[in-house]
Simulated scan of single mutants.
Amino acid sequence: MGTTGGMRVLVTDASQGRTAGEVAARIASRLRDAGLAAEVRPIGAAGDPAGAGAVVLGSAVYDQRRLPETERFAGEHADAPASRPL
């Protein structure tokens, strides 16, 4: 894979256990292998994603629903993807 200029990627997750955090860490590792600056943060500590070039938002799913904190984060930062290249 070619270099991407070191774009910063925020990888965040919400989980009541360790699984989502482990998945987030693995995703971030793959992104780093591809030349990206990936940072993993739990969703409660993710803060404003404005400085990131991309965001990976992960969540555990219970009863076919994402966790409330995931929905809250996505709602609070819904405009952020519109300013990012696809």
Rank of each mutant, 00 (worst) to 15 (best):
M1W: 12
M1Y: 14
G2C: 06
G2H: 08
G2R: 07
T3D: 14
T3K: 07
T4L: 04
T4M: 06
T4Y: 14
G5F: 03
G5L: 03
G6W: 02
G6P: 11
M7Q: 11
M7E: 12
M7I: 04
M7H: 15
R8W: 03
R8E: 08
L10D: 06
V11R: 02
V11P: 15
A14P: 14
A14H: 10
S15T: 10
S15M: 03
S15I: 00
Q16W: 06
Q16F: 11
Q16I: 05
Q16S: 13
G17Y: 06
G17F: 07
G17E: 02
R18K: 11
R18I: 09
R18G: 13
A20E: 04
G21Q: 04
G21N: 02
G21F: 03
V23M: 03
V23I: 07
V23N: 01
V23S: 01
A24K: 04
R26V: 12
A28I: 03
A28C: 10
A28D: 09
A28N: 08
S29C: 07
R30S: 06
L31T: 08
L31G: 13
L31V: 07
R32S: 09
D33P: 10
D33Q: 02
A34C: 12
A34V: 06
G35Y: 01
G35Q: 02
A37M: 00
A38N: 04
E39C: 10
V40T: 08
V40S: 06
R41I: 00
R41L: 02
I43R: 09
I43D: 07
I43A: 12
G44F: 01
A46C: 15
A46T: 09
A46V: 06
A46F: 00
A46R: 00
D48E: 03
D48H: 05
P49Y: 05
A50P: 15
A50Y: 11
G51F: 00
A52E: 05
A52C: 09
A52F: 04
A52W: 04
G53C: 01
G53W: 00
G53H: 00
V55T: 14
V56D: 07
V56Y: 07
V56C: 07
L57P: 15
L57T: 10
G58L: 08
G58W: 03
S59K: 07
A60W: 08
A60V: 06
V61F: 14
V61D: 03
V61R: 00
Y62E: 03
Y62H: 15
D63C: 11
D63N: 09
D63P: 11
D63F: 14
D63V: 10
D63L: 14
Q64F: 15
R66T: 14
R66N: 14
P68C: 12
E69V: 13
E69I: 08
T70S: 14
T70M: 09
E71H: 14
R72L: 12
R72A: 14
F73Y: 15
F73R: 10
A74I: 05
A74F: 09
G75Q: 04
G75D: 02
E76S: 13
H77R: 05
H77T: 02
H77V: 01
A78N: 06
A78Y: 12
D79I: 10
D79F: 09
D79E: 11
A80Y: 10
A80L: 11
P81M: 04
P81W: 08
P81D: 04
P81G: 05
A82Y: 13
A82I: 09
A82M: 12
S83K: 07
R84C: 09
P85W: 00
P85K: 01
